[in-house]
Design a protein around this nucleic acid. Structure first.
Lengths: 229, 229
DNA sequence: CGTGTAATTTACAAGTTTTTAACATCTATT
DNA sequence: AATAGATGTTAAAAACTTGTAAATTACACG
């Protein structure tokens, strides 16, 4: 799906110009003509970017920007400023905009800036490949997992174990295999380490479940992770 | 070395006028008199700017412009148009020109536009982009960050570290990774230098927070920056 | 050459995780 | 149902990691 960009300006000709060029560059658009409308839309939707004029009736663009940041809405913002005065530029960035553009601007430059901002943002998404298992999503590079949107924290061994189970979901893994994979070397003798960590893991990811769901015990063999409990 | 500008027009008197003024303004020049010649030169050389007449024998100026953009050649283009009707074509602004100028024009105005475009382009290289993380905004080019509008001061290492964390926000970065990224080479042995700088950073950006917020410690692994603490 | 600032090392307390060990509970088999 | 072995759970000990203050070194600048 194409990324969606919110265009905020009170002048129809500017909106039209923006819309034409932004859509031509391969984005979807949404429009707001006043500060309150922009706030409302930005809060209740997910945009890839907001192009925000500084001069708006009602609430100023700077104020819209500041209020969004206050609510920890991190959508990248490209500010449009009318004058080239330094003060405008500084205040634009001060309040949490990602970049600014002085009117009049060439459409090409505008698109270049839009893409520069998005490039920076999407570069991160690349590194975010996740492992999905029903309600549970694991983010290997962030040492983090989410269940129904709630973030779960793990200790290192717990996370390594969870990740290994998830990477081999559906397979029965013996304690020995898990020891070799996660503890780097074969523990001598018998140890219950794996069981203890499994127990902790279950406590975290199966908090409100009576029976083990994601992690199943295969008696006499080991453990197995299943994606749809 | 002086920036080089490609002048494209089929009328020698116009070329001469352009050349005289552009060179007087401190640029080098190159000349093309037909569309194909212009395309060839623009593709095989690097110019700071192209001044392109819309009326050309063979291929029209608009077509030259479109073909260049199609090849992802981003050299800024200033179009020259004869009358209002022609200028419409350009103001449609979908052919990728950066600005246009209606003939007849004053040399002074032409130079002003040339310089405006070049300023915009060079500015774009690395000005104003900020990194935004909720209340915290980082200005990479200014060695400065603001939190709720208050300016924070950092030492160089602190800022480098903050910036690197911010650029990789969400990702867990090991001490070794940070050392490689910010200290340029791998420190031998064990050192606590990263921790010490993290401690200083936190003191500055998390002044009134009990628990670490922006910078999280991932025990046994390293640190991770999050935009919504 | 001092002086002041920043960078680094050191040291140790405080904090967290991992492991062990012990006991409770469960499962399969007779 | 009894039993032996396997698994679940918990708490405390051990091992390791991190936070930070203070001491030391490096370094730029007058």
């Amino acid at each position: 799906m194409k990324p969606k960009i919110l265009l905020v300006d009170d002048e129809i000709p500017i909106i039209t110009l923006l819309q034409y060029n932004v859509e031509k560059a391969g984005f979807q658009t949404d429009i707001a003509q006043t500060g309150p409308e922009a706030l409302d839309k930005a809060i209740n939707n997910t945009y890839a970017l907001i192009i925000l004029d500084i001069m708006l009736p009602g609430i100023e663009g700077t104020e819209v920007c500041r209020q969004l940041r206050e609510r920890n809405i991190d959508t990248p913002i490209l500010m449009l400023t009318a004058k080239g005065s330094e003060s405008d530029k500084v205040t634009g960035l001060d309040i949490g905009a990602d970049d600014y553009l002085t009117k009049p601007f060439s459409p090409r430059e505008m698109i270049a800036r839009v893409q520069a901002i998005l490039r920076r943002v999407t570069e991160q998404v690349d590194t975010n490949q996740a492992i999905c298992m029903g309600q549970l999503t694991i983010f290997p590079n962030q040492y983090e997992a989410k269940i129904n949107g709630d973030t779960l924290d793990f200790t290192r061994k717990e996370f390594d174990l969870l990740l290994y189970l998830a990477e081999n979901k559906g397979l029965v893994l013996s304690r020995e295999q898990l020891l070799n994979a996660i503890w780097d070397y074969a523990f001598e003798g018998s140890t219950r380490i794996v069981d203890v960590h499994i127990s902790h893991l279950r406590e975290k990811i199966e908090a409100n479940a009576k029976k083990p769901r994601f992690i199943q015990t295969i008696h006499g063999l080991g453990y197995k992770m299943v994606s749809v409990p």
